[in-house]
Design a protein around this nucleic acid. Structure first.
Length: 182
DNA sequence: CAGCAGATTATCT
DNA sequence: GATAATCTGCTGT
């Protein structure tokens, strides 16, 4: 369990502190190794043009989930921070529930089970049904990092605006990233 | 190993 | 009507 005010901070601060935090959904997951921050001043963010039905969760209370579908195919999981801001969960190290993840992912090798936002949601079983749920309650579990990490930053992946804002945070050298840091 | 096309649909303009 | 915070598989070196 994280501090109650953990998410009531600017998204980039939260993002940095999330590296190493263990995320479980119904007991399946592991420590986060890659996240990205988005806030309302950021043209790449869904919240940039204000609240809409889709992004409503981003303007709700901190510490809740924002889930959306991308490219008509994949789900993406975010943690809501201060209003209009959130952290996109991009990759984690699969440690708990390996068998279940591999089943959901069609037997992919371990280092590709959760190496990207869409893959991670598939491995953990995250869908639109999780949108708006509290991260403090079932099925979510968040466990504080038990060691310090070497954190690196860089440009975010897959966006066309705000490309110069280095709000991608990764655990340096992790073999479980969606892409190596440039 | 790099590069690219196709999948597939909700959402916003 | 165009776009999108992606993934996979195919192509060619």
């Amino acid at each position: 369990m994280l501090s109650p005010t953990f998410f009531d901070r600017p998204a980039p601060d939260v993002a940095r502190d999330l590296i190493g935090v263990t995320l479980l959904v119904d007991g399946v997951g592991g420590p986060l190794v890659e996240v990205e921050a988005y806030d309302q001043t950021d043209p790449a963010s869904h919240s940039f043009r204000g609240p809409t039905p889709r992004n409503a969760a981003m303007f709700g209370p901190p510490g809740h989930a924002y889930v959306y579908k991308i490219y008509g195919i994949h789900w993406c999981l975010n943690f809501v921070c201060q209003p209009g801001s959130a952290v996109l969960i991009r990759a984690l190290e699969p440690l708990h529930g390996l068998a279940e993840m591999q089943e959901r992912r069609g037997g992919m090798p371990e280092h590709q089970l959760c190496s990207g936002p869409g893959k991670l949601c598939q491995a953990l079983g995250v869908t639109i049904q999780h949108n708006g749920l509290s991260l403090d309650a079932t099925p979510f579990t968040l466990l504080p990092s038990d060691s310090s990490h070497d954190i690196a930053t860089g440009p975010r992946i897959g966006i066309t605006k705000g490309v110069d804002t280095p709000w991608r945070f990764v655990r340096r050298g992790s073999p479980f990233l969606s892409k190596p840091l440039r």
